[in-house]
């Protein structure tokens, strides 16, 4: 069952990062929706694994679908989805996942049928240019480092909170973990799309079990609050340093969101 979970984890990431890589807003948005469905599949597979008295982990063995055109990414994603079909369990959940995947495959075929969708992919070109605006090199460097640090952090938080949520019987904890997972999904989406705009889209590195198997929740929360405080400082510094008003406002917005994360985490202490 862990193998199925691992495959779904990989498919979630492949769909999510395909969404980040593609510039067309309609395709991007549809793929993002499908990636969220894949994340729920992963969550349900995890619950079923635990109900069966087994365990799962966050090991993965995948490479990012780095391609030059939209069609190449979509084709690669289609192949991945088809290859994963044999892994799903023969039960109600397995059937649900298969029908969702078949619908996604139909959507991908629809995209491939329209030649005008086949645009160039710029998410991996390493250009590090922010739209058509002029940012100083030091600002671009600061933004690059921030995005690498924070995209990993958000991915890490999604998986840690989901791991703890799957194992708690406490309703308050369950709800707070859900809020934090939802918030981190939004942040990861924002940062992933920004990395793609800069041409530096990359998968967050794999989580080691020392990171997500939390033995002391209180210590984890205290450390987590300190990390949120540090993220706030980074957002503020970036917002102050970046001359682009739109970007600066975005980092202020994220900064205020981190404030509330701290409140949510304090509820659990």
């Amino acid at each position: 069952m862990n193998k199925t979970y691992q495959k779904k984890h990989e498919l979630w990431l492949s769909t999510l990062f395909a969404s980040f890589a593609i510039n067309d807003e309609t395709i991007k948005s549809r793929l993002y929706d499908f990636s969220q469905i894949a994340f729920r599949h992963m969550k349900w597979l995890g619950e079923q694994t635990l109900e069966n008295g087994e365990n799962y982990n966050y090991d993965r063995s995948m490479v990012l679908l780095k391609r030059n055109t939209v069609f190449e990414i979509i084709e690669a994603l289609k192949n991945e989805i088809k290859a994963f079909h044999s892994f799903y369990p023969d039960n109600v959940l397995g059937k649900r996942i298969k029908t969702d995947d078949i619908y996604l495959l139909e959507y991908l075929s629809e995209v491939l049928s329209k030649e005008e969708n086949n645009k160039e992919i710029t998410a991996f070109n390493m250009q590090r240019k922010w739209e058509d605006r002029e940012l100083e090199q030091s600002q671009i460097d600061a933004l690059t480092l921030f995005l690498f640090d924070e995209s990993y952090k958000e991915y890490e938080l999604i998986l840690i909170y989901a791991y703890m949520q799957a194992r708690t019987k406490n309703i308050l904890q369950f709800n707070v973990f859900q809020d934090l997972v939802d918030e981190s999904h939004f942040h990861l989406k924002s940062f992933g799309n920004m990395m793609a705009k800069l041409g530096i889209l990359a998968l967050p590195r794999e989580l080691h079990e020392m990171t997500y198997v939390v033995k002391d929740l209180d210590k984890f929360l205290v450390d987590g609050i300190a990390e949120e405080e540090a993220a706030k400082v980074m957002c503020k510094e970036l917002s102050d340093a970046i001359t682009d008003e739109k970007l600066s406002k975005f980092f202020d917005f994220i900064n205020y969101q981190e404030n509330y994360h701290i409140e949510l985490m304090k509820k659990l202490l």
Partner: peptide
């Protein structure tokens, strides 16, 4: 030191990462 191409490469594809 600074973000040269080599550092970026290590950021994007860390070598020997895992277990």
């Amino acid at each position: 030191e600074g973000l040269n191409a080599e550092t970026l490469e290590h950021l994007i594809n860390p070598k020997n990462y895992g277990k």
